[in-house]
Every structure is written in structure tokens, then in C-alpha cells.
Design a protein around this nucleic acid. Sequence first.
DNA 1: GTCTATATGCTGATAGAC
DNA 2: GTCTATCAGCATATAGAC
Lengths: 195, 195
Amino acid sequence: MARKTGSHSQITGPLVRQAALRLFAQGGYAAVSMRQIASEVGLQAGALYLYTPDKQTLLFTLMHEHLEELLTAWEAVEKPVAPIEQLQAFTRFHIRFHLERLDAVFIANMELRNLSDENFAVIEKLRKAYEDGLQSILEAGHATGAFRVPDLKLATLAIIAMLTGVNTWYREGGRLSRDRVERIYWNMVRRSVGA
Amino acid sequence: MARKTGSHSQITGPLVRQAALRLFAQGGYAAVSMRQIASEVGLQAGALYLYTPDKQTLLFTLMHEHLEELLTAWEAVEKPVAPIEQLQAFTRFHIRFHLERLDAVFIANMELRNLSDENFAVIEKLRKAYEDGLQSILEAGHATGAFRVPDLKLATLAIIAMLTGVNTWYREGGRLSRDRVERIYWNMVRRSVGA
DNA sequence: GTCTATATGCTGATAGAC
DNA sequence: GTCTATCAGCATATAGAC
């Protein structure tokens, strides 16, 4: 028989982060206690400190992992040559990726003010890197004359805000399928850049 | 000489709400204590309960006042006849109104989960009423053939998300004036509905 | 690796003096 | 209308037993 206690670090650590993700998204970072997180995993509060030095680092880790995953996933997407097809790929990727991670996206957008200054700077840099991915597509389309965009930076921010907005209302099993939503939004994005 | 203590209810009440608005926006509802709010106004914690029955009602009141003001202000806007001009009026109104109330907008979007069920229902109804204002413009434009919108509901939500997104990055004294931002966004909104 | 016990401090809200 | 004092409870984080 295996012993009841032992090297569970590789199992318990992810479980702790998973529980924290769900609880932070549900109640907000400040409103969730370490005891609640521990209870969710089946631990006592003290044991959590084997997996995170403190509550703040736990929050930071969740956001950091989320953004690293976002950048990696976007890099892995095969990029078409034509800017308009790149923009379509981005639109569909963004909606799909974000809809699959409601909790993480919610936290990444809402809990920025609860990060320490250093942690905030790291997260902002990653978020900016993602925005640059879209902006370079818009620049390419602007250069070839495929898009008519009044301001590249604002168009980038506007499109991302519009697409991420899907997370606030979309629910599985609703009126529209994911694929249908992606098509409708692509239609609006395409028009918005004059393509 | 007027007495030092006395009927300050009409002054102190608004000051309490103003302080709560700023502090909730800055640190989040759950992270702000009644003592902090009191201290900001120059009161002791106990005195706050003359102006609100509890912390939850204070939050609800802030959101409720904000949304009532939003609906009243939009009703007061003179409406052109042509749908495209109505949509332009909405776009400019929305950006302007929201940019002037960064704290209230932030709270109204982020603290919904901290409302009791009854309070949440009230706030949701008001938010829905505002959305309906935009949706009826899109419907009118769809009927006249002025707009080409793949889905009225989604277009409504997409446009509002895009416009409210301005609040996350716009800062007074930046690269662009408010008026310039309004024009650029109007350009994108107009195109997005195929007008 | 997890538990129990504990230190220290802050929380929302109320009672009653002035 | 405001203050002081207070209640009962929960917070994060640590120490040390097992």
C-alpha cells in the first residue's frame, strides 16, 4: 500500500491553482480566503503555503500562466499570407481561446489592481505583446491597402475589446454555436477595418 | 455662529457615496473597509450607518444611481431621424458619458457579483434597457436597409463592448482628444454595421 | 506533506454617551 | 449627527508535531 501522505506536490500544486482560479473568478481575489481555497482542495490552510509563498503570488501565477499560454497558442497558429486571412485567423482564435477559459480571462481583466507593482509590470508586458500581434496584422493590411483603418492603435484596442466582450454573455447551449458566433464577429471585424 | 454638529445629512450623505465610489473603484468592494470610507470623509465608522443601512446597500446605491443617470441622459439626447445619424449620436454619447465617469463605470462592470440577488436583478434590468436603446437603432437601420447587420443582438453587444473599452486606456492629456477618439470610433462603428 | 495551534490584526455592525 | 467602546468572527501567515 502506498502511504497516505507523501510526495503529492505535483498533484496538489495544480489542484490548488485550479481551485484558486475558480474561487477568485467567482468571488473576487479580496473576498476569497486562503481557508476557502484549502477547503476546496481538501487541505488545511497552513498546507497551502507549501505551494505558494503567499496569496499575492498565487494570483500572479494564475495570470502569468494564462498569458503565457495565450501567447504560445497564438504563435502556434498557422499564419496565412494575406492580411485579411490573418485577421480572420486572429478573430476566430481569440474568441475560441477566450471562451475556453472564462475564469482565467475574467481574473486577468479584473484583478490587475490587486497585483503588486512589479507583478503588474510583468503582466502588462505580456498583454502588450499579444496586442502587438494584432496590430502588426492591421499594419500589414494597411500597407497593402487591404484595410482602411483610421488609427492602428485604436483599431487594435477596439477589436480586442469587442471580441473579448463575447465572454460576458456567451453560454454553452445558448441560441448560437461557437462557430456561428465566430462567423458573425468576423463579419463585423472585417467591415470595421473597411475590408 | 452655526453649531459644529447638526443637520449635515444632505452634505455628508453625498460625500460618503463619493468616497465609496472612489475607494471601491480603486481597491474593489471586498477589499475596502467601512473604516476606510469613514476615514476618507473624516468620520468614525459608526457614523456611516446613518447614511446607509449596510455596505451592500451602499454598493447597490452607487450602481443604481449611475445607471439611472445613464438612461436619463440618453433619453435627453435629441434624436435625429435617420438611423445612421442616431447611431452616430449614440456612439458619441456613449463614449463621452462613460469617459466622464471612470469610477462608476468600473464599479458597474466589475462588482456585479457582489450584489445580492434582488439588487442584481434591478441593475440587470436597467442595463438591459440601455442596450435596448442601441438595439432599436440597429433595427431601424436594418429595416430601412441603411445597415447590414448579421445579428442584431450580437451587434448591439459588440458595439457596446467596443465603445466601453475606451475607458480602459483613455487618459486625459494623451495622444488623442476626446473628440478625435469619438470620431475614430464612429468611423469603425459605422463600417462595422455596413453603413 | 499535512495537520493543529496560535499570533496579531482587521472586519461589519451595534449601543449608548454627548 | 457624531463619537467611543465593544462584540463576535475571520483574515494571513507561521511554528512545530507527526
